[in-house]
Design a protein around this nucleic acid. Structure first.
Length: 741
RNA sequence: GCCCAGGUGGUGGAAUGGUAUACACGAAGGACUUAAAAUCCUUUGCCCGCAAGGGCUUGCGAGUUCGAGUCUCGCCCUGGGCACCA
């Protein structure tokens, strides 16, 4: 008997499948249910690691299963290939980012093919391809026309090491999510996408999709909608007012002072002469601190009195105006009314600076107001006409009363900010705008797209923050599309999250020269039936893609406004030490070594077997031998010619129960129990002589998990002429299952 | 602090409210072998016991139930997200 040697058979079948084009998903498949199965496309970092296998090879089990069920499955693959790592590595090794990236793509394509995954390579998409980013730019222009892309001065996150702007989503604990350098705030004029226009729909439409609860709550928190009111405090002897945002208008009678953020425009204007020194000194100190230091909760709040007073519109009480660093300038109006008795932060501040307290909401139980603020709802007291009102009624009525005098109105605030998409780096999609001295910014004409990224000898970011593209002199000079005069191209490139916000649309029609995709094809394939990816994209890629989908829908290019019907988060494979795999930690597991040792089928199947797919966990090489043994035993069963006992009839029940269970397991992405069912089945069957029908069924069940060995036995030993991967998923007889239980 | 997810043998993990620990790894013993590897067989939750047998066990403590890993409440711990957002 020939020993099971995966390395001898796997490459051969991979070539065979490719040659036979069995995984190409046709655009026209009469009578078949279309199934778009999307997995987040990888960044071409250079080498496939075990995490990529987990992502693509394990998902592949489901892709193959649905195909066997008779669906027209699209399981596409591509590369999210623009971005900083290419640039940084290229700088270090004196290479061109383009060359480095394209080499990586070629290498990783080879590696991806070695997994034996059922990708439709004919739909491959790469974001650095001018035929692709032409449409990234085209979408930008459509958004620009509708005011969804605009240029404005804004306080941005700036990474001093990468010398570029970062979106809020890319700042983790005050540091750059790429290099970990502490981010600083800088005021710059940047291109932005108006995602805030969609804040409400981005929250409300979460109801429409079947997504993990974690993702939904993460997005709700990130968007941070809060309903409240804007209330105008009057300034004595002035027509000007200070507007504050509050969700607790019911505590208005308890406001004992007012706080402006240090950046508030009225600070210098209001401050009384004898307080100018103190306030000036305070502002200097605040400026010195980084955003991280300022917003740290451990830090004690600090502030200073301006000498000025504001008038509470509800009772004409004069309250002092302070400046304090605990008020955030970019949220709400940058000013708050302080109610120490009913707000924890105001409580802490008022205690420190000995500011007065006024209790206006009666707690249901005994409450020690010397200890802490009572922040829950209750019944009002010391609030004139509103005594006895519940908090929720009072919120409405107080705002209503002030609204009549135009001193208040209802207001909804969001934490979400517009998406700053400009990047001052080289390796990205050029922003298709032209700056003319006379006409200002003008869009590049659609017929001139794509604006190709020029090759640049010196693509290093400059210290002054000017984009590297400013050095491309020839490229830079262009005629103004409006007046025909001398003009310059925009030199910023786009955030790579722009590239990946629409790639799932391009998969449906990757070679289209006239549109980002043919509307007919989009209609056939979209929305995506199942989207699998990592939870790290909860508030980035997934939020941006939803925004793109909604905007493109509103512009009439799509007829749906949620692109991903079902989303499941895949768990992450960590290093054996339990930490995230990284080169610097030296805990990266190389799948190539494992494939050489055990074969692709074993690696795939072991990854599936390790644990629940949505959970992930540390890599543990210990158990892989078990899967390897299992496949060897499968091999032996089909190769052995010894005389054995006939299969007892009752084993049929087990077979049919397994068909049912494995199908359900794959359907629910419970690959680990699917594998164990196959192992149990083999344990039951291996000592008997199996009828051909049982042999076939067993191989069909195995095929999605271990496609190579299944094919080898199917064609090589059973003598079938067509691929096992064109077979139907076996059906079970429910009657047999009922009898058993 | 708030919001999610989770806590089961030595390990990865399994279990529509109904025999907890399936499947696999590891370990121990045995067979084959000059020997080793590979393979096969047996044992393997913990404690007491030579054994027969008995007791305990799903982070901790209560509760609902004929019956709880599973449901409810309160705590502890781990991982993740948000975080002075008024």
């Amino acid at each position: 008997m020939i020993k099971y040697n995966p390395n001898k058979i796997e490459r051969r079948w991979q070539k065979y499948w490719e040659a036979e084009k069995i995984y190409v998903a046709p655009d026209k498949a009469k009578g078949k249910e279309y199934f778009y199965f999307l997995v987040e496309f990888p960044y071409p970092s250079g080498n496939l690691h075990i995490g990529h296998w987990y992502t693509f090879a394990v998902s592949d089990i489901a892709a193959r299963y649905w195909r066997m069920l008779g669906k027209n499955v699209m399981y596409p693959i591509g590369f999210d290939a623009f971005g900083l790592p290419a640039e940084n590595t290229a700088i270090k090794n004196n290479l061109q980012p383009e060359d480095w990236t394209k080499n990586n793509i070629a290498h990783m394509t080879k590696q991806l093919k070695s997994m034996g995954a059922a990708f439709d390579w004919s739909r491959m998409v790469s974001t650095i391809d001018p035929d692709y980013y032409k449409w990234t730019q085209w979408i930008f222009l459509q958004f620009y026309k509708k005011g969804l892309a605009y240029r404005a001065k804004t306080l941005v996150n700036w990474c001093p090491k990468d010398k570029t702007v970062l979106a809020n989503e890319q700042v983790i604990d005050g540091c750059c999510d790429r290099c970990g350098t502490q981010v600083v705030q800088k005021e710059l004029t940047q291109w932005m996408y108006k995602i805030t226009d969609y804040a409400d729909r981005l929250i409300d439409d979460l109801e429409k999709v079947d997504w993990p609860e974690v993702t939904k709550t993460a997005q709700r928190n990130w968007i941070g909608r809060s309903r409240g009111a804007e209330i105008h405090f009057l300034l004595p002897n002035s027509t000007e007012t200070i507007k504050v945002f509050t969700t607790r208008a019911d505590t208005l009678y308890g406001a004992t002072y007012l706080v402006l953020s240090p950046e508030h425009l009225l600070v210098t204007k209001l401050t009384k002469d004898q307080y100018l020194d103190a306030v000036g000194k305070y502002l200097e100190e605040v400026k010195k601190k980084s955003e991280l230091e300022r917003t740290s909760l451990e830090k004690e709040k600090s502030g200073v009195f301006t000498g000025a007073y504001a008038v509470n519109p509800v009772n004409n009480e004069r309250i002092p105006i302070w400046v304090a660093d605990y008020v955030i300038s970019r949220y709400g109006t940058g000013a708050v009314m302080a109610v120490p008795a009913h707000d924890e932060r105001d409580f802490e501040f008022a205690k420190k600076y000995e500011l007065p307290f006024k209790i206006v909401v009666r707690p249901k139980t005994d409450w020690d107001f010397n200890e802490s603020a009572f922040i829950e709802d209750g019944v009002l007291l010391d609030s004139d006409d509103f005594n006895g009102y519940t908090s929720s009624d009072a919120r409405e009525e107080i705002v209503e009363k002030l609204a009549q005098k135009k001193l208040a109105h209802r207001k909804v605030n969001y934490k979400l900010h517009d998406w700053v998409l400009s990047r001052q780096r080289y390796w990205g999609t050029p922003i298709p705008m032209i700056h003319c001295g006379k006409c200002g910014y003008q869009p590049v004409s659609e017929k001139d797209l794509p604006v190709k990224l020029p090759r640049l000898e010196d693509y290093l970011p400059s210290a002054d923050g000017r984009s590297p593209l400013a050095k491309a002199e020839e490229w830079l000079k262009v005629k103004c599309p409006n007046c025909g005069g001398e003009a310059e191209r925009e030199t910023d490139t786009m955030d790579t999250f722009v590239d990946s916000s629409w790639y799932f649309l391009r998969y449906t029609d990757p070679d289209n020269k006239n549109a980002f995709a043919d509307p007919e094809k989009i209609k056939e394939w979209l929305p995506v039936d199942l989207y699998i990816g990592g939870a790290e994209h909860n508030t980035m890629h997934l939020l941006y893609s939803r925004f793109f989908t909604k905007a493109l829908c509103d512009l009439g290019f799509l007829d749906f406004d949620e692109a991903f019907t079902v989303r499941r988060n895949r768990g992450d494979i960590l290093g054996p030490d339990g930490y995230k795999m990284s080169k610097s930690r030296g805990n990266v597991v190389d799948p190539d070594d494992l494939v050489t040792k055990y074969g692709a089928d074993t690696v795939r199947m072991y990854l599936a077997f390790m644990g629940p797919y949505e959970q992930g966990g540390p890599w543990n090489a210990g158990g892989i031998i078990g899967v390897s043994r299992f496949l060897s035993r499968v091999w032996t069963v089909f190769n052995q010619v010894d005389k054995k006992e006939k299969l007892p009839v009752e084993k049929n029940n087990i077979l049919h129960r397994t068909i049912k269970k494995v199908g359900e397991d794959i359907e629910n992405l419970r690959f680990n129990t699917g594998v164990s069912e196959l192992m149990k089945l083999l344990n039951e069957l291996e000592n008997y002589e199996l009828p051909v029908s049982v042999q076939k069924t067993f191989l069909q069940l195995l095929a999605p998990f271990a496609p190579h060995i299944a094919e080898e036995i199917w064609q090589g030993i059973l003598g079938n002429k067509k691929s096992i991967h064109l077979e139907k998923w076996p059906e079970y007889d429910p009657k047999l299952i009922v009898e058993e239980t």
